[in-house]
Amino acid sequence: MEHVSLTGGTGFLGWHTRAALKSYGIPTRTVAVGDSFDLDRAAASIAGASRFIHIAGVNRGSDDEVRVGNVRFADQMAAAIRRAEPAPAVVVYANSTQAGHGGIYGDSKAAAAEILQSAANAVGAVFQNTLLPNLFGEHGRPFYNAVTATFCHLISQGEQPTVQQDKELTLLHAQDAADLLIEAGREIDGNARQVHETVSGLLRRLSGMASLYDHGQIPDLASKFDRDLFNTYRSYTFPAQTPIRLTRHEDARGSFCEIIRSHGGGGQSSFSTTVPGMTRGDHFHRRKMERFTVESGEAVIALRRLFHDEVFEFRVSGSGPVAVDMPTMWAHKITNVGNAELFTSFWSNEIFDPNFPDTIAEAV
């Protein structure tokens, strides 16, 4: 069976790449580097792969740690590529746009690319050197991966970040980077997916999104960048801001409750009934946002982050309405745990497209 092997599978970009591969139904094998590297195991994992993607690297540390680490990882993978039988068809390197532009990090990334290309040439594999700019996305590590992760973390904790050095950033969402790495030999315009924004502009966008989301409101998601940025921010608010309490207004006529307030962009609302004991869901989304609101009945909403074991559960009821927003790349489901029929409303930020459903089966 076709498979893709990759290094750095538990890191930021590696996790996003595994999530993208899962959405395409492509099995993955992870390869350890550094002190955990074993040549025979690595060669066995790479053997016969349709694509081997080298993602693992050293982004932070002393000059020696960065210089030696990136070259060491490349040397390890080059040895595995040469030993693998059969060799991988394509070798992809998750390189940086800083490569070849001086500096310890850029020079070490450029040197690693040369090592991997030599190994790919030796075994007759296609080599793809993918230059990636500043990445952002769900579950980035603050104070390490990128300024976006740091801003999201601080804002979600109620702190106000400051801009130490304002400059223009070239930003690419990690799911777009994953698509480039997975489909590097196909027609994908990586430049068209990049966005240019200043550090201060990025902070303004995130602060504005957070101020709305603090009240359960959805910012304008008309642009792909704002959607991806908002999904990134939301990943830092879960589970602390889940569920979102809704206000019920009651009078002699009955009650009224506002479910969603969106400030722009597309959207689709739907409604379901579920009989006692039955479940809906068991899937995840890569990009779309989805909100569940139980209007009548009793339910448990369960969520699990891809490639993790911990399951978060929220018991919800129509008698005390709340909204539960599904984080991207988290499997989720809703189960009727009451004795009566369950009435649930669903909202997503985009109109469902059967050709691109962005709904991938995955059990919670």
Rank of each mutant, 00 (worst) to 15 (best):
A32C: 08
A122I: 14
Y236L: 12
V123H: 09
A47W: 02
L39I: 07
Q98F: 07
W15H: 05
A74M: 10
G338E: 15
D325N: 11
A74W: 01
A94W: 05
P276L: 12
A222V: 15
L202H: 05
G57D: 04
A89D: 08
H308A: 14
T148K: 04
L169D: 00
G208P: 09
A363K: 09
A89H: 12
R234M: 11
F346T: 12
T344H: 03
T274Q: 07
Y236D: 04
A87H: 05
P327F: 02
F52E: 00
P354G: 08
G277M: 08
G106Y: 02
F230L: 13
A222Q: 08
Q165M: 10
M1H: 11
P354V: 09
F230S: 02
H196S: 14
D251M: 12
P219R: 08
V294C: 00
H3W: 14
G69K: 06
R261M: 14
G297V: 00
F127K: 03
D226P: 13
L154Y: 10
L132F: 08
E313D: 07
T162Y: 09
G266F: 06
F312N: 05
D107Q: 08
Y233A: 13
T198R: 13
T232G: 06
S345K: 06
D309W: 01
F307C: 12
T30S: 07
S207R: 10
R83A: 08
V300T: 04
A32T: 15
R51L: 15
V300G: 05
E183A: 05
A49H: 00
S62C: 08
N129D: 12
S62P: 03
V195I: 01
A363Y: 15
D189F: 08
A74Q: 04
R286N: 10
E85L: 04
M326L: 05
F292A: 02
A49G: 04
A47E: 02
H153P: 10
G100K: 08
D282V: 05
V71Y: 06
G8K: 01
H16E: 10
V58R: 06
I301T: 01
N59C: 03
V300K: 06
E183F: 15
G318Q: 05
T150N: 12
L306Q: 07
T335D: 03
R82W: 12
P86D: 03
R193T: 11
D179P: 02
F346V: 14
H308Y: 00
L342F: 08
E362C: 10
I244Y: 00
